[in-house]
């Protein structure tokens, strides 16, 4: 019966324009069973993504092409359960990781790769994005710090790492909270003059980086634009508007 109702939904044609769950039809007033079960399956996949792990070996192998040192770092949250309940711990580096930072000199940018809430997102998207972004950064003579792979990390851990490496700007690429249609969304947060204790207004965020969302080409362009503006104006955050598409008057 639900199949039948679904077929007569006049909104079917609009489904080509969005991944949103439109035109599902009704059984009575409710969602047809097929869609109800599809939703449950997507939720199950997202739950699984939350508990996925950073593929540090695979990632490190892929990052070799950039000829940069790679640091393996870990937050103070020793496992996922702790990570979910204690975000404060996910924002700080553990002792062993802090010690690793002391050996490096002043640099322009540190690129940090962290699992966040979906290691799956990072495992799948990092190479595609960096293959476009890093050459852009090098083309304007920006000096890159070692690439940092962080387990059980949250966004603000980039303040500790940027500060520890004396980088002028930190860029963290991190798995976002998985949604139903996207368990593989990666976010990018950039902070000029990173120092522990900063909050969201000091950062610029570009979200939903994945092939079916903001694709690598647009994402790399956007990040590169914001980084250049941040260096030009020596700031990031709410005062650094994304004016790449300016008003026409």
């Amino acid at each position: 019966m639900s199949e039948e109702l679904e077929n007569i939904s006049p909104l079917k044609a609009l489904q080509a324009f969005t991944a949103a769950r439109i035109g599902m039809g009704h059984v009575g007033l409710s969602v047809p069973l097929k869609h109800s079960l599809e939703f449950k399956l997507a939720h199950a996949n997202a739950r699984d993504a939350v508990y996925s792990e950073l593929n540090t070996e695979g990632l490190a192998a892929g990052l070799k092409q950039f000829n940069l040192p790679i640091l393996h770092l870990h937050s103070e949250a020793e496992n996922r359960a702790k990570y979910l309940q204690r975000p404060d711990l996910g924002r700080k580096l553990n002792k062993a990781s802090l010690d690793q930072l002391t050996f490096y000199n002043d640099t322009d940018i540190v690129i940090i790769i962290a699992d966040g809430l979906s290691a799956t997102a990072v495992n799948q998207n990092i190479n595609g994005l960096l293959a476009l972004l890093i050459p852009k950064l090098l083309s304007v003579k920006l000096k890159l710090a070692p690439l940092c792979l962080v387990q059980q990390g949250r966004v603000a851990i980039s303040d500790y790492i940027g500060y520890g490496l004396r980088a002028k700007l930190s860029l963290i690429l991190i798995g976002e909270r998985p949604g139903l249609s996207a368990a593989d969304s990666m976010g990018a947060y950039l902070t000029y003059s990173p120092v522990p204790g900063l909050t969201d207004e000091s950062r610029n965020c570009i979200s939903n980086i994945r092939p079916a969302g903001l694709n690598y080409y647009f994402a790399a362009d956007k990040i590169f634009y914001l980084i250049q503006e941040a260096f030009k104006r020596k700031l990031s955050g709410i005062n650094l508007k994304d004016n790449a598409g300016l008003l026409d008057h």
Binding site: T18, A19, A20, R21, I22, M24, H26, L29, S30, V31, H35, F39, A42, H43, E176, R177, P178, G179, L180, S181, A182, S185, N208
Partner: peptide, 25 residues
Amino acid sequence: GIPGSDDIMLNYQSTSFHDALYLRK
């Protein structure tokens, strides 16, 4: 009111168009 409860931009689940129909009824 979100299509099928699934916000494909903000990545979270809220109430759907169907949910509102249910509540009204």
